[in-house]
């Protein structure tokens, strides 16, 4: 029995190890100052992913600003106010459905709603890309925050009510602070997920060959889009840089996760 379990464990971990090994090996070889500080004009020319790194951080930052407050507020509503009412259950159901929607479809929906003239007509750009990422991140924030808020002992809410706190005071002064480390961790994981998404950006950010600082209206670059471009064309420099792009994303994700752990550890009390 222990042998079977052990084998299953090895099988489960093996893909992760292989992926990490590949990315570190190939990405590390292609990683350079040039990669981080210059812009490639095409996969066949020399250059780097500076524009992609800027675009990914820019869009992920906006997406986090949009999705984290809304997600935490929604989760707070579900746990502290809606509980098992019909509206709360409906919100929960659609949040679950949203988690399962293919991310390319999220991009398509944002394209139809915000980008084209039949919708809001905003065109391609940073903001619509961020909106697509926020749509992916939102259900993750809601569900992880809901779990964290449910972990706050009912005793604390009772104690607070017994001292004459109103419901919102209990929420703001007791429940949210008690759940803060978990909320931060969940938010960081949602950011990590958003930073690594490519499909929703195909029809929203579109991609660019220079550093874009415009908030909206100019197509924006993204690491994932540049990687897709690089891997799909038969040019050695582009393929090498795509590996380095993958390594960059993994490092960003790792940094976010470590930061989340660090904050979670410090905020206890």
């Amino acid at each position: 029995m222990a042998g079977v379990l052990g084998a299953a464990m090895v099988l489960a971990v093996a893909p992760l190890v292989v992926i990490l090994w590949q990315v570190i090996l190939n990405g590390g070889a292609a990683m350079s100052w040039e990669f981080l500080s210059s812009v490639e004009s095409s996969p066949r020319d020399p250059g780097g992913y500076l524009h992609g790194i800027v675009g990914t951080l820019y869009m992920t930052g906006i997406a986090a600003t949009l999705s984290i407050p809304i997600g935490i507020l929604a989760a707070t509503y579900l746990v502290e106010y809606g509980r098992s009412g019909r509206f709360a259950n409906t919100v929960r159901f659609f949040t679950d459905v949203m988690t399962g929607v293919p991310s390319i479809f999220v991009g398509l929906a944002i394209y139809a709603l915000l980008v084209v003239s039949g919708g809001a007509g905003l065109g391609f750009g940073t903001f619509v890309g961020a909106a697509a990422l926020a749509t992916i991140m939102l259900p993750i924030v809601v569900r992880s925050s809901e779990e964290m808020l449910n972990l706050v002992p009912a005793d604390l809410r009772t104690a607070s009510a017994g001292l004459g706190a109103r419901r919102w005071q209990t929420t703001v002064k007791v429940v949210l602070p008690a759940a803060a480390p978990g909320l931060i961790t969940g938010s960081m994981l949602a950011i990590a997920r958003g930073a690594g998404e490519t499909a929703p950006l195909v029809l929203t950010a579109l991609g660019a060959r220079q550093v874009v600082t415009a908030f909206q209206g100019t197509p924006q670059a993204d690491i994932g889009l540049l990687m897709t471009d690089g891997f799909s064309q038969p040019f050695e420099p582009g393929i090498e840089r795509a590996w380095a792009g993958g390594l960059t994303l993994i490092i960003v994700t790792l940094l976010l996760t470590i930061t989340a752990r660090f904050i979670a550890a410090r905020r206890k009390v």
């Binding site: 005793d155 604390l156 009772t158 104690a159 017994g162 001292l163 602070p177 206890k268 009390v269």
Partner: peptide
Amino acid sequence: GMVFQKPNPFPK
């Protein structure tokens, strides 16, 4: 004022 069965200080 109210005091409960199980000590329930806030995590503060």
